[in-house]
Amino acid sequence: MTSALLPTYARAPLAFERGEGAWLVAESGERYLDFGAGIAVNALGHAHPHLVEALTSQAQKLWHTSNLFQIPEGERLGQRLVDASFADVAFFCNSGAEANEAAIKIARKYHAAAGQPERYRIVTFEGAFHGRTLATLAAGGQQKYIEGFGPKVDGFDQVPFGDHEALLAAIGPETAALMIEPIQGEGGIRSVPPQCLRGLRALCDERGLLLIMDEVQTGVGRTGQLFAHEWAGMAPDILSAAKGIGGGFPLGVCLATREAARGMTAGSHGTTFGGNPLAMAVGNAVLDVVLAEGFLDHVQRIGLVLKQRLAGLKDRYPDIFEDVRGAGLLIGLKLRVPNTDFVAAARAEHLLLIPAGDNVARLLPPLIVTEAEVGAAIERLEAAASRFASGMRRAAE
């Protein structure tokens, strides 16, 4: 049957009807261990009771008023994020791409307000992914996403990942900011070393640039800190977050220092649905859990267990696995076999993974995952790897 949906997704032939914690149940009744979490979105798993209660309670009261009026739960969520981070102000939206659009506008407007409107260009890094709008596609710079959509939005200069000399050469009198993911998610779980993040901070201070941190995938506890840049002991001027902050409900936020956001006056930016009462209720419920004492310690501990177990798997199957990357519960398996084939093999073992660039399979379990569930995932990965190894031996005979 022909689908009425625009064919922009290569969907797996699988549909789910319910979920609980780290598990999804298909229409057939089969249970799948979800180590994709909706691409790092379902930070607290499926049907978390605190999130369900918060959404249900708010839905019975008020859904939408628009930003023409005050939204108390938004004020509360913004203050909690500010109190827990480097930031002074927050702007709520609906997605990571929107959060990055806000970050780009804030950086450009900062220099315009300072009397330097010519400083509008932003240096980004090859392999990055910042969203699917025309501007965020240009920021990411990946040709496979840009091709066919007309002229690339001006104002972005990509440099090779980890190339300090190219970075220095790209900075000129029109440069407004640097924009980087502390760990590239779509780009293959490639981490920026802490000393490099500190170096970028120093470089921005020296050149009068703003530093934008894209933490859409790494933020809200995913690496074992509220935000991944905290591991480096530094702070950006502007930060985008989404995915996990809504625990499955559409929510994004752009955080900034008051100085960086000084050009953003009334009417300079806006959104119809961003910061709506439903999203704000869920966002506050997510923070209730993530900021609770011991929760981030749990993420760090379980992340270490997962990484150690994956290292053992790599050693047992060196023809399948090349490397284990990442931090906390943002882990990448660099593969020697096609990652899409391996993700399909894992799915056949009822384990859900997410492919990424650089031939990587991502493991993004909900942050509430247990050690027993990590063990179950390793067993299923081993079964998938064993199937691959057997096939490779037969092909060699």
Rank of each mutant, 00 (worst) to 15 (best):
V324D: 04
G172E: 03
Y145C: 05
R198A: 13
R132N: 13
Q225H: 05
A90R: 11
L167N: 12
T257C: 09
Q142R: 14
L137N: 11
F295G: 01
A384E: 01
S28I: 10
L333A: 11
Q142A: 13
I368C: 12
K105T: 10
N276T: 02
L62D: 07
A87K: 02
Q142G: 08
M280H: 00
G96S: 12
I368N: 07
L291E: 02
P117Q: 12
A346N: 08
S66T: 15
H130A: 13
G332C: 13
E349S: 05
H164K: 15
S191R: 07
G187R: 06
Q217E: 14
G332Y: 11
I180G: 03
L251P: 05
C93G: 13
G127H: 11
V290S: 00
Q300K: 05
A372F: 01
V305L: 13
V253C: 08
K334M: 07
F149L: 15
S390K: 09
D154I: 11
H298S: 02
A170E: 11
A232R: 06
S240Y: 09
D34F: 02
E98W: 09
G150H: 10
F69R: 12
V374N: 08
N67P: 10
V299K: 08
F35R: 07
Y32A: 00
L200Q: 10
V305K: 06
G248T: 04
A256F: 05
Q142E: 14
F86P: 06
A138V: 13
T8R: 15
L197P: 04
V220N: 14
K314M: 12
A389N: 02
A54P: 02
Q79K: 11
V52E: 03
N339R: 15
L352K: 03
D297P: 00
P160V: 03
Q225R: 09
V286M: 01
I320T: 08
G21M: 10
N276L: 05
L200S: 06
G275A: 04
E397R: 14
A356V: 06
A256G: 10
R316V: 05
A372R: 09
V52A: 00
R121F: 12
A385S: 04
G247W: 15
Q60V: 11
V41I: 08
P182Q: 07
L363T: 10
M179T: 10
S95N: 05
L134H: 12
D315L: 11
A12K: 15
I104T: 07
I171T: 10
A12E: 14
L329K: 02
P173W: 11
S66Q: 14
A166T: 04
A26E: 01
G74W: 00
R394D: 15
G221I: 14
G270K: 13
Q225V: 04
L24P: 03
L330F: 07
N276E: 10
W63T: 14
P366R: 05
T56W: 01
G275R: 03
P277K: 04
K61S: 13
A103N: 07
D288R: 01
A361T: 07
Q184Y: 15
A361E: 12
N284C: 00
L200W: 15
L278G: 01
I189K: 09
D341C: 08
L77F: 02
E165S: 09
Q58I: 14
Q195G: 03
L381K: 06
L226N: 00
V305N: 05
D323L: 01
